[in-house]
Nucleic acid binder design. Sequence first.
DNA 1: CCTACGATTGAGACCGGACTCACATCGGTT
DNA 2: AACCGATGTGAGTCCGGTCTCAATCGTAGG
Lengths: 358, 358
Amino acid sequence: MSSDGARRRDVTVADVAKAAQVSKAQAARALGNYGAVSDDVRERVLAAAEELAYRPNELARSMNTGKSHTIGVVVGDIENPHFGLATRGITDTAKKSGFNVILINTDENTAAEVEAVSVLLDKRVDGLIVAPASSVETQHLRRVHESGRPLVLLDRSADGLTVETVAVDMAAISYESTQYLLDAGHRRVAFISTLRTGAGYSAGTRLDSSQISDRLEGMRQAFADGGCQFPEDLVRLNAGDAGSVRNLTREVLLGADPATAVVASDGLIALSVVEAIQEMGLRIPDDVSFLMYDDFAWTRLTTPPLTVVAQPVYDMGAAAASALIRQIEGRPPLAPAPEFNATLVRRGSVGAVAVPAR
Amino acid sequence: MSSDGARRRDVTVADVAKAAQVSKAQAARALGNYGAVSDDVRERVLAAAEELAYRPNELARSMNTGKSHTIGVVVGDIENPHFGLATRGITDTAKKSGFNVILINTDENTAAEVEAVSVLLDKRVDGLIVAPASSVETQHLRRVHESGRPLVLLDRSADGLTVETVAVDMAAISYESTQYLLDAGHRRVAFISTLRTGAGYSAGTRLDSSQISDRLEGMRQAFADGGCQFPEDLVRLNAGDAGSVRNLTREVLLGADPATAVVASDGLIALSVVEAIQEMGLRIPDDVSFLMYDDFAWTRLTTPPLTVVAQPVYDMGAAAASALIRQIEGRPPLAPAPEFNATLVRRGSVGAVAVPAR
DNA sequence: CCTACGATTGAGACCGGACTCACATCGGTT
DNA sequence: AACCGATGTGAGTCCGGTCTCAATCGTAGG
């Protein structure tokens, strides 16, 4: 029944100690539950703490333990449900181990990512989970790693950085799903991604993202194994906002030798691609087949329901968090590193290739 | 071209001072850019800092400035795109003013929320943005407010707490959209929400959420003004996972006097409701009309596209963040408090009520 | 040439906990 | 009765910054 009004200064151990008539050291011990404290003292201290509504200052605590019980998470875009779900996996897992999460968005911009990493390091987070915007520009990540601060990568790997990385085998699933398209008779398969590249795309271009290059590699391999020519001309990168995705979609579907199937590299792009296809008055899968990465609930609601590459996003977020916390607590890596596999969920958006009307 | 390997202890001002041959105080002044420092000293200090790759310890800094440049955000579920987008608005705005965000998920559980608020306060965040799980149990929020820490509520208000609150006028938009349904001839309108209530729902039940009670109030009012009887029996709360939503949907559509229109209280529920309707072999809007809260991109892709209540979620998140930062920096509230209005986006999921076949 | 005042500068206090160290105290040994 | 190890306890240091305060330096004004 404390009736103290608004109080400027917070209650500190010193205040509690004074109220309990013991030394600051004893109060700290009783409160922190360490060292030797007599029952009498402990009771008086806890009672005083209760009475004064004492709350420890985590900042001060972190300062000399060196542990902040906070992990930093750097993602491209939480608005993207992919990261929303992964973040959920991370925060749930972190909370279970008593860690909090500071979240920073980079808009898939490397400069912002560098800044984000610095800020988090300055705040002395215990570790970092990063979904790197670039697999090439990774000096900042290397610095983190070298400074000894635990780091776990999510979704994408970083060149020449031997850090624990939680990601699915993109090349494999891409191979599998491309084969599925080939089996349905598709030879003209378009791939649309927001990945930003300095120059345009051509066969040998060095890509900035391991995710995307793995996917293209998988496609290329599947085409090669099927004895077909991979349609490099239908790969469209640098997609930006909804309008740009729409334009790219029209491009690949209206060209001289149009695509018969379109692959969208993530759920956000997929929305615009499908919208564009509907606007053009084309039917899925009769006129165009469609395949997308990420399995969101809404993909089951469209007509037809969409065929997708499902990734265990939540579990991957959770795994990244436990791997990080394991490292923070200095425990050895899990004997068989957990593997994550994407699966092709065949619904209704991929059909046999339409016989061109002529 | 520093070639120092892994180093355990971080570089501190003292280290920089030593390297620059000046006192710790002078180094701190040069680094912190305050007080009087001669050009000579400043140069030497900055050079030394650069050389040693000095980075200030934000924890230590926060400790005696009292400012952590961090705000705490407590939401029910980031996995829900509604909060994903709001969070995006918050983080974008926060970043512009140099603030970071610690995000905590509560699963719409009040106990978790109380805990979350405590943790954030202990971490000495400069302010809090909370989307309260309950509008009734708000002692913990009252405590925050009384302790003088800035607090802004998002989406929902809290009983008897005069805190800045960023939310749309739910009763108004609910009234408008209900009227729209009534005009289409619907009298049997079901409402499905995940809101947890201790007891079941009946006319006078005191609801835990201002959002939901405002919506029901708006519906009730519209029915009254239209001279119709509000179908209390079709209000379904306590929806849980996808399966439970599905069951509730079947209930309201298969009863003796079934609903002719269903309103889903958020995007996550909507997915399951639509799925259930499709499974039952009913067509929207011929057999059942459908209306949902929140305008997500996928609602345009279904057949027919869904009629929704769009809320300026991103802007609301951004507004909550700027209001909070304004309070933190001690600036006066904006003269005309910004208002946010939801709008009814009429697409194709609401049709004239079906003439019952008999 | 002497004084005064602003610019510089270094020593040290302080923020709020955690933790080291030296100094009791006390029942149990031999 | 002298000795010992296991508690209890308080004084004080430290973490890494910020900031106060008094001392020093330079030189412009008298």
